[in-house]
């Protein structure tokens, strides 16, 4: 099974069975992106820990590549990332690896919670790691900056996706954005919908495979990172993550749209 998957183009997600056999073969580096204290308690066997907060504290490529080296990852290492937050944090880390130029990274297709509830093996052992040397070949074509976004969104064949929840979107969003809340991307068992369902969801919303798509969310590109992989899972290839997302957009005082004249917040029972 492991050989089969290697022959194909690296798929966006790795399922539990494939991951377990890769772990047995010692042919994978598993990254757990949960908080250190959660990781220390229990994790998928052989996995290493890279808490997202740690990565985000300084995500300059020079620093990130050091982190990656310390986790024993070089250009050839096959990497699988997981979290316990519906795949959003794992997506952000996986995307960062891609951005560094790593091309063998995928997401575990379920969360750690789901892994646990299936009774699959866990461990509290922290593996000893031999540091490696990863090259730095940045891929700017998968990242959008505010300046880039501002110009690109005026083009007809560029679609801007906002992956925050509906009420936040109604309250304020980048002009012309299309709202696909992150919740619609997964199911109760998997971090991403089955391909056929995912395709239909995007098709219904007019998100065509030949467009350039830029995703964004609230602040650090996690929810929109998940959307990046959701799109990738159904073969969209021209994708960019606006990694600094709406928080930066707002701070830069760029134009913002709002759904006016309706008190939608008062319908929420929160």
């Amino acid at each position: 099974m492991c050989c089969l998957s290697k022959e194909n183009i690296k798929s966006v997600t790795t399922d539990a069975d494939v991951l377990r056999s890769e772990i047995r073969d010692k042919s994978v580096r598993v990254i757990d992106v949960r908080r250190e204290e959660d990781y220390k308690k229990t994790h998928i066997p052989t996995s290493v820990n890279m808490p997202l907060a740690n990565l985000l504290s300084d995500d300059s490529p020079e620093r990130v590549v050091k982190l990656v080296n310390a986790l024993g990852i070089d250009d050839e290492t096959s990497v699988v990332v997981y979290d316990d937050t519906f795949g959003a944090l794992a997506s952000r880390v996986a995307w960062t690896l891609e951005y560094l130029g790593h091309n063998d990274v995928s997401l575990l297709d379920m969360t750690f919670g789901q892994w646990n509830s299936l009774g699959l093996e866990t461990d509290s052992k922290i593996p000893s790691i031999e540091s490696k040397n990863h090259s730095l070949k940045l891929r700017p074509e998968i990242m959008a900056t505010a300046d880039y976004l501002e110009k690109a969104k005026e083009k007809d064949d560029v679609i801007l996706l906002d992956n925050r929840e509906r009420l936040n979107f109604l309250e304020q969003h980048i002009p012309k954005a299309v709202n696909i809340p992150y919740r619609s991307l997964g199911t109760s068992e998997k971090i991403l919908r089955p391909k056929e369902d995912m395709k239909r969801l995007f098709e219904n919303r007019g998100i065509e495979p030949d467009s350039e798509i830029i995703t964004y969310c609230g602040s650090v590109g996690t929810l929109s990172g998940l959307a990046y992989y959701a799109l990738k899972s159904v073969n969209h290839s021209n994708l960019k993550l606006y990694v600094r997302s709406f928080k930066e957009w707002k701070n830069l005082k760029k134009p913002i749209d709002k759904q006016e004249n309706a008190h939608y917040w008062d319908l929420s029972a929160e």
Binding site: N179, P181, R183, S184, N204, L267, S268
Partner: peptide, 29 residues
């Protein structure tokens, strides 16, 4: 309601349940 609406649902006076602020293209879902 979490996937396609506002994360809350509304019980109407005619025993219906309503999901508000659904994108028209998501209604079929």
């Amino acid at each position: 309601s979490e996937t396609f609406s506002i994360g809350s649902a509304h019980i109407s006076t005619r025993q219906n349940i309503q999901l508000h602020w659904v994108v028209l293209e998501d209604v079929s879902e």
